[in-house]
Deep mutational scan, measured.
Amino acid sequence: HNGKLCKLKGIAPLQLGKCNITGWLLGNPECDSLLPARSWSYIVETPNSENGACYPGDLIDYEELREQLSSVSSLERFEIFPKESSWPNHTFNGVTVSCSHRGKSSFYRNLLWLTKKGDSYPKLTNSYVNNKGKEVLVLWGVHHPSSSDEQQSLYSNGNAYVSVASSNYNRRFTPEIAARPKVRDQHGRMNYYWTLLEPGDTIIFEATGNLIAPWYAFALSRGFESGIITSNASMHECNTKCQTPQGAINSNLPFQNIHPVTIGECPKYVRSTKLRMVTGLRNIPSIQYRGLFGAIAGFIEGGWTGMIDGWYGYHHQNEQGSGYAADQKSTQNAINGITNKVNSVIEKMNTQFTAVGKEFNNLEKRMENLNKKVDDGFLDIWTYNAELLVLLENERTLDFHDLNVKNLYEKVKSQLKNNAKEIGNGCFEFYHKCDNECMESVRNGTYDYPKYSEESKLNREKIDGVKLESMGVYQILAIYSTVASSLVLLVSLGAISFWMCSNGSLQCRICI
């Protein structure tokens, strides 16, 4: 991952900044910058967002509201009850120091605090018919004063009620008058409520006091790749198909172990950190130390980045220098085999997901714990399936590479015959000098055995068991695999060879 928040398929997220979902939807004055928000790819909250409900109280069923919003990608904020005409018999300019803005008392931008007009609070009834052709999110509140005197001074009615009804919602609220500790300079409380109004449905408000009335509502448009994440990451000019709280993932790998919460087309989250597919040879310690064997393909974004291909070729060293050249036929066979294998694994496992966190309130801790156990169970199954699949494929890959290298080895052996000696570690020792032209003939299969047989015969008789390297004779190393990324691999195959001279070296080696 890149540690950044990015656009998702070209669409920017909605960053709530210092506000949370509650503050944004109710219209906390400190969240005025969010009022123009219309569309987004996903919503970003920060872990310690401080601006929620400015007048103390709870947004009821907040967790369910977050779940609903996680599939919303755009909205239209509109005046559901026009301020100047909807409440002619009531005062609608209630403000509070708890919702101060720029040093002055204020109130929510989407709600109206209705109080008595003169000395009376006549029963009010108002309704709205949803003609938007889509779901409408309606929010309101109920004020709970701290004393009967406060109730009387604001609403005149000691036994007030609030009723809200639609086809799918029907509740009646009565204020709970009680002494409470002071929070944000208030002994009173406000509880906030919401409902989704279906197209064509009607919502009716009736009250004799204590109503925090809707002013603006939201017509919602769903987008199934949307979601809500909690993150401290910063926004950058970048684009992605998959976003996590820790950063964007741009990967076609089937798995990731970065974060379980994802938005967009994302690899499946697994616990494993070692889900690797081999593309090189079986481990040979001396070669492995030099980083030549054991190439791997990573299938977990965050564990290993991208696929690494092994390729086969020849390396030689003689009086004229040293050089490398790919054996294109065996390399292409290996590439085709690995590509098919990788595609097979991805096809089997690479279903892209959006995974969002589930919200539970403080009273639902047991449910949250149960949900976590269920999620953990599914996660263990996914991890096991992934590891088992790759384990089985790896064994076949190792066998496949062994065969490829063996074929190259036999190709060289059949040409050199007794003009060189096998020394048991995949290397041959020449009994004759071999210049670049000679080396090329070994690589392309045109090695002239009779041409060098007499010199080889004489050297075999002279050496008589002495280690060949100390006599200045020449080696050919018969097994060799270097490691390159897919891009470098293609470039390498396009070149005939490249040279690395070893000044004054008397050794001649050709490596497979």
Rank of each mutant, 00 (worst) to 15 (best):
M235I: 12
H236M: 10
E237A: 10
K241H: 13
A248C: 03
A248D: 05
N250H: 08
P254N: 06
N257I: 06
G264W: 09
C266Y: 09
Y269W: 01
T273R: 14
K274Y: 00
M277K: 05
N283V: 02
N283Q: 09
Q288S: 09
G291L: 03
L292N: 01
A295K: 09
A295H: 04
A297V: 06
G298R: 08
G298P: 07
G302H: 02
G303M: 09
G303E: 06
A326F: 04
A326D: 01
D327M: 06
K329Q: 15
T331F: 01
A334E: 08
N336Q: 15
G337E: 00
I338E: 10
I338F: 05
I338G: 04
K341V: 01
N343C: 06
E347A: 15
K348I: 15
K348W: 07
M349K: 04
Q352M: 11
F353P: 00
F353K: 02
A355E: 11
A355H: 00
N361A: 14
L363W: 08
E368K: 13
N369H: 10
K373C: 04
G377W: 01
F378H: 05
L379R: 09
W382A: 06
N385Q: 15
A386M: 06
L389A: 14
L389D: 02
L391K: 04
L392K: 06
N394Q: 11
N394A: 04
T397D: 14
F400I: 11
H401G: 05
N404D: 05
V412F: 09
N418Y: 12
A420L: 05
E422I: 14
G426Y: 14
K433F: 11
N436L: 00
M439D: 05
V442E: 07
Y449N: 12
S453V: 12
S453W: 12
E455I: 13
E455K: 01
L458W: 06
K462I: 10
V466Y: 11
K467L: 06
E469I: 00
S470Q: 12
G472F: 14
V473D: 11
Q475R: 07
T482V: 14
V483K: 00
S486T: 14
S486L: 14
L487R: 11
L489Q: 11
V491W: 14
S492N: 01
G494N: 01
G494L: 00
I496E: 00
F498S: 06
W499Y: 12
S505R: 04
L506M: 10
L506N: 01
Q507R: 10
Q507Y: 01
R509E: 10
C511T: 03
